[in-house]
Lab assay of single mutants.
Amino acid sequence: TEYKLVVVGAGGVGKSALTIQLIQNHFVDEYDPTIEDSYRKQVVIDGETCLLDILDTAGQEEYSAMRDQYMRTGEGFLCVFAINNTKSFEDIHQYREQIKRVKDSDDVPMVLVGNKCDLAARTVESRQAQDLARSYGIPYIETSAKTRQGVEDAFYTLVREIRQH
């Protein structure tokens, strides 16, 4: 089974770092803004072998026109913010609204991801993020692309959301 996953969120929150940590098991430290990259990885989730087709997208506003296209083809979405960047957390709402509009559905598989949880300088409390996820009816997972904490959990949870859909 193949799953088309799309990673969305503001610029600099760590979308590529999360994806590369999942696929290649290493942490990319330097920031190089993405336009669009796709990665494929075969994994076993709950005993089922599946192929993850992951689209890593641009957070930069100037590429926002490309969003409709990949939102149409994606089956599930990782909505990523950084726990030390309140603005990126506030941006999640717009991504969710755009996904709902493009998919013409209120019920699209999504996982809210709070990345950079290895950093002490948190400005978005776990509780705020949990409340937001609960209001959307989606899971919330904290990750660190640096330490790998929660990385597999985030992507695998999204696959489970798609399966249950």
Rank of each mutant, 00 (worst) to 15 (best):
E48K: 07
T49W: 07
H93P: 12
A10G: 10
A129E: 04
V28Y: 10
F77G: 01
G12Q: 13
V108Y: 08
E48C: 00
E161I: 13
V6N: 06
H26W: 14
S126A: 10
N84S: 12
E125L: 11
T157Q: 14
K146Q: 15
D104G: 14
E97M: 13
Y31K: 00
D68K: 07
K116I: 14
H165L: 13
Q98N: 13
L132D: 04
D56E: 01
I20W: 08
F155V: 13
K116G: 15
C117W: 05
F155Y: 08
G114Q: 04
I54F: 07
G59W: 03
R101A: 10
S16C: 00
R72I: 08
S64Q: 08
N25V: 04
K100Y: 05
L5W: 03
G9C: 01
R72C: 08
R122W: 08
K87N: 11
V6H: 08
Q164G: 15
K87E: 08
H165G: 11
I45V: 12
L51N: 09
I92Q: 04
D131W: 06
V80I: 11
G12P: 13
S144I: 09
T157I: 07
L158A: 04
E90N: 11
A121G: 11
T34R: 00
Q149I: 11
M71H: 10
L78S: 01
L78V: 12
P139D: 10
E90S: 15
Q128F: 08
E90K: 09
T86K: 14
T143H: 00
E75G: 06
L132Y: 09
V80W: 01
S16P: 00
E36T: 00
K116R: 15
G76H: 02
G137N: 10
Y136R: 05
V113N: 02
K15H: 02
A10Q: 07
D46A: 10
V80M: 13
A120L: 08
Q149P: 08
L119G: 15
S126C: 09
R67E: 13
Y39H: 01
A129L: 13
S88D: 09
I54Y: 00
T57S: 11
L22H: 14
G47P: 05
I45F: 05
E97R: 10
I162A: 05
Q164W: 05
R67Q: 14
I23W: 02
A65F: 11
I45Y: 09
C79T: 04
D131R: 08
Y140V: 08
E62H: 15
I162T: 06
K100L: 13
K116C: 15
L158Q: 01
T34D: 00
L18D: 00
Y39S: 00
I92V: 10
S38A: 04
D46E: 14
E97Y: 05
V80T: 05
K4A: 09
F89N: 03
R163T: 08
S135W: 10
H165W: 08
Y31A: 03
Y136A: 07
V124Y: 12
A133F: 05
A154R: 01
E36F: 03
V44L: 10
L18H: 02
F81L: 11
A154W: 01
E30G: 03
V28E: 12
I54K: 00
K4M: 05
N25R: 12
Q21C: 07
V124I: 12
S135F: 11
V111K: 01
V7W: 04
D68W: 04
V113D: 00
A154P: 10
G14P: 00
L22P: 01
M66F: 14
G12H: 12
E125I: 08
Y136S: 06
D32K: 00
D131I: 08
H165V: 11
E2A: 03
T147Q: 11
G9N: 01
L112C: 05
L78K: 01
E62F: 15
P33G: 02
K15M: 00
P109M: 06
E75K: 07
D91G: 10
Y156L: 13
A65C: 10
E36N: 02
D53Y: 03
T19F: 00
V113L: 12
G14Q: 01
L132V: 09
Y156H: 11
E2M: 05
V43N: 12
I23H: 11
V113P: 01
V124L: 10
S126T: 10
G74R: 06
L132N: 06
A121N: 09
Q128R: 11
R148A: 08
D104L: 10
L5A: 04
Y63V: 13
Y31M: 07
M66R: 13
F81T: 04
G59R: 03
H165I: 13
Y70E: 15
S16E: 01
Q21L: 05
Y140I: 07
G59A: 04
V151E: 04
S64I: 09
N84F: 05
Q130K: 11
H93V: 15
D37R: 00
Q128V: 09
V111M: 05
Q42H: 09
D37K: 00
E142Y: 02
I138A: 05
Q130D: 06
L52K: 00
V6D: 00
L52A: 06
I99Q: 02
L55D: 14
A154S: 05
T73S: 14
E142M: 04
D53I: 02
C79V: 14
D91N: 13
N115T: 15
D131K: 08
N85Q: 09
M66P: 13
N84P: 08
V113I: 13
R122N: 13
A121H: 10
V80Q: 04
K146R: 12
M66L: 12
L55S: 07
I92N: 03
M66S: 13
Q21N: 13
F77P: 01
R134C: 06
D68N: 09
Y136L: 14
I83C: 15
Q149G: 09
I23F: 15
I54Q: 00
R101D: 05
R148M: 15
V44C: 10
L55F: 03
K100G: 05
G76K: 02
F89T: 04
R96A: 12
D46M: 08
Q24M: 08
G14D: 01
G11D: 10
Q21D: 14
Q60S: 14
D153S: 07
P109T: 06
H93R: 14
N115D: 04
I138L: 11
G76F: 15
E30P: 04
M71S: 07
A58Q: 06
E125P: 08
Q69C: 08
V28A: 06
V124D: 13
V44E: 07
L52F: 12
E2V: 05
E61K: 12
M110T: 03
T86C: 10
G14C: 00
Y70L: 15
